[in-house]
Amino acid sequence: MPKRLVRIAEKTGRATVMGVAEIGYGAYLFGESLFWLIMGKRRRQPVRLRAVMAEAMEFGVRAIPIVAVLSSTVGAMLAIQGIHTLKTFGAESRVTFGVALSVVREFAPLITGIVVAGRSGSALAARLGTMRINQEIDALHVMGIDPVRFLVAPALFAMLIMLPLLTLLADFVALTGAGLYIGVQLGMDMPAYWDRVIEALSTDDLGHGLGKSAIFAVLITLVGVVNGSLVEGGAEGVGKATTRSVVHAISAIVVTDMLFAFILTR
């Protein structure tokens, strides 16, 4: 029995050390990426705008349809639940207030983050993992091209721009979805609905949501990159890293979201 306990303790310890090391590696990559974004030009090794644009296209523009579909659904869902719940108090007309706040502060950043983590976090991990296995990362090193500058910085920069923009889009689409249902149910016309939405929201709320999405952007990119660049063991390793990166990124997003709510919303 004690032997088994020792083994469990050993395993837990090793996993903890690994986890801490990975977080440290993520932080290092973040610092390096910022370094190249700022100092690259001076070192005559700039982060290429074309690479950033390509990543932005992939992470952001191509995610628009799925983000739109999901956020309009979530918006309508919130309106349905809101009206249903508030009916108990005879306060259906207050639904706009609740929907507007919960979409902008919580649901839009969260849904967008989860969708992008599933789409692009996994893709990043798979791409970097494959490159590592094919010695393409080594090839970059020996060509004197820093892989962080060449691969990580553009992805991080693109994600930092695109995720808040997607979140803004999700805000609008979700509120429209909610508005359509509320309009029909409560006989409210759209201009009146938007008036109430704008009344309910402050720039603070908008900033809260978008700020969170920027943090999610960093989390998704770093989790994908860390998992991808630690791939070992061929194609199977790439598959594992991909799965791992989605699970880790979504967990990180949800936990961060809760922490945000805890610190800033009470």
Partner: peptide
């Protein structure tokens, strides 16, 4: 690192699997 980068521009490497960017 800067010197290393400069040095690496003076050497070339052909990897076993090519390591071409797909």
């Amino acid at each position: 690192e800067v010197e290393k980068t400069r040095l690496r521009t003076r050497m070339g490497v052909a990897f076993q699997g090519g390591a071409l960017f797909s």
